[in-house]
Structure formats: structure tokens, C-alpha cells
Design a binder for these strands. Structure first.
Length: 101
DNA sequence: AAACTGACTTCTC
DNA sequence: GGAGAAGCCAGTT
């Protein structure tokens, strides 16, 4: 299985109402320094609805990019709708950060 | 095969 | 806490 598939698999595990950082996913996938690559995978996102790429944020909780129509704004709305806590323009990681169970 | 690109992260100032 | 710079990875051209 390729690193990419692993990333998608992990991302798909993020529970509703929680978020994970690119670096965190990269680490779980085996490459702690592949956070950047992870971002690309989300951008591609071949498993659109199956993989909740909107639950992936930057290390500081900031919402970066979003390919789907609506962009960042839409992404933020979705997260709020799912119950994710926000701190201004950033996600409150101290509360909504996902802990791999 | 080499170079370019980007939805990242971390360190300094 | 905001701005700039350097490092790292996989995919695309």
C-alpha cells in the first residue's frame, strides 16, 4: 500500500466534530515530514465524500486551502456545523484536535 | 530523469 | 503575535 493510500485511510477515520493537522496525519502515515505532501493528497482527494478532507487543518488550527466550491469559507461552515470549536479564524485545537483513538 | 509546485512546519527577527 | 526564510515530501510536467 502506498503512502498516499495510508493517508486517505487515516483521514477517513477522523470523527465528526474533530479535526487533525497535516503534520499529525503525516506522522500517523509514517512520514512525519510529509505534511506538505498530505496537503496535496487532500487537494486531489480521489475519494471525495468518503474522505472528510475538510477536517484537516494546519498545525496552528488555521484553515488552509479547499478545492471544493465555497473554499475556506465553506470549509469553516462545515466544521462549525459539525461542532468544531473555533477561535476567530482558527480551530481551537485544545478542544477539537483529534486523538487517533 | 530533472525541475517545478504546493491545502505544511518550524525557526528567527 | 505577525512576517520572512529554509527544509521536506510526493505528484506533475
Amino acid at each position: 500500500m502506498s503512502f498516499r493510500d495510508t493517508v486517505y485511510k487515516i483521514t477517513a477515520k477522523i470523527p465528526k466534530g474533530k479535526v487533525a493537522t497535516y503534520g499529525q496525519i503525516a506522522r500517523l502515515a509514517g512520514n512525519a515530514k510529509a505534511a506538505r505532501a498530505v496537503g496535496m493528497f487532500m487537494k486531489k482527494n480521489p475519494f471525495a465524500p468518503r474522505v472528510p478532507c475538510h477536517r484537516v487543518v494546519a498545525s496552528d488550527g488555521k484553515l488552509t486551502g479547499y478545492s471544493a466550491p465555497g473554499g475556506i469559507v465553506k470549509k469553516k461552515s462545515m466544521l462549525i456545523h459539525e461542532g468544531v470549536m473555533f477561535k476567530k479564524a482558527r480551530v481551537d485545537l485544545s478542544i477539537s484536535r483529534w486523538s487517533e483513538s
